[in-house]
Computed example of a mutant assay.
Amino acid sequence: MTRTPQEIFESYVYAGALTRNADALAAAFTADGVFEAPLMPADASFPRRLVGRAEIRSAMAAYYERQAEGGRAPNIEKSGYVLHTTSDPDVFIAEVDTVFDGDEGDRVVSLVQIFRIRDGKIARLRDYFAPELMS
């Protein structure tokens, strides 16, 4: 059964940003899948490049553990996204505006993600966002 870009994207967001489930997040990738955040500096706490499910699982579990100490969940009702298909059926792009409620007003995190899919799983994900948002 072929999954649509929307199904792939929504399951990725649910596993990552919404539930912070590193096992489910890693399972969304192919065995040799690559997760990249190319704008992150090499010494950042958020991983810049992860290769394979085991590395994705362990690095993101560690990141989610650190984030749990003070991180807030996104406000789903205020957040939104637009998916763009491309001429390559295995590539789609997500424009995302994630809203976090705050004491001093909403904080909007805008990003672009490029997904390359193989057999209904993420083979490569490039996540472009401002690095200072992850500090």
Rank of each mutant, 00 (worst) to 15 (best):
V112M: 13
D119T: 09
D32C: 05
T85C: 01
G33L: 05
D106I: 07
I122S: 01
R124D: 02
A17C: 05
T2I: 14
T2K: 15
A31H: 10
A59R: 12
H84Y: 11
D90C: 01
L50A: 02
V96P: 00
D103E: 15
D127H: 14
V108M: 03
A44S: 12
M40C: 04
A42T: 04
L25N: 01
E132N: 09
K121C: 03
E36W: 11
V112W: 05
A73Q: 12
F115C: 05
G71S: 07
I93Q: 00
L25A: 00
S11L: 06
F115R: 06
R49H: 08
I76W: 13
P47I: 12
F129G: 05
E69I: 02
S58C: 02
S87P: 05
L125T: 00
H84G: 02
E10D: 11
G52K: 09
K78H: 04
E69K: 15
S45I: 10
F129P: 02
E55R: 06
A15P: 03
L133Y: 14
M60N: 05
Y128S: 04
E95I: 07
D88A: 04
T98Y: 07
T85E: 15
R116W: 07
R57S: 01
L39I: 04
V96T: 10
G105S: 06
L133H: 14
S110R: 15
T98H: 06
D127E: 14
E7Q: 15
N75K: 09
F9C: 03
L25S: 00
D90K: 06
L83S: 02
N21S: 12
E104M: 10
D103T: 12
I93L: 09
G105H: 07
A42V: 05
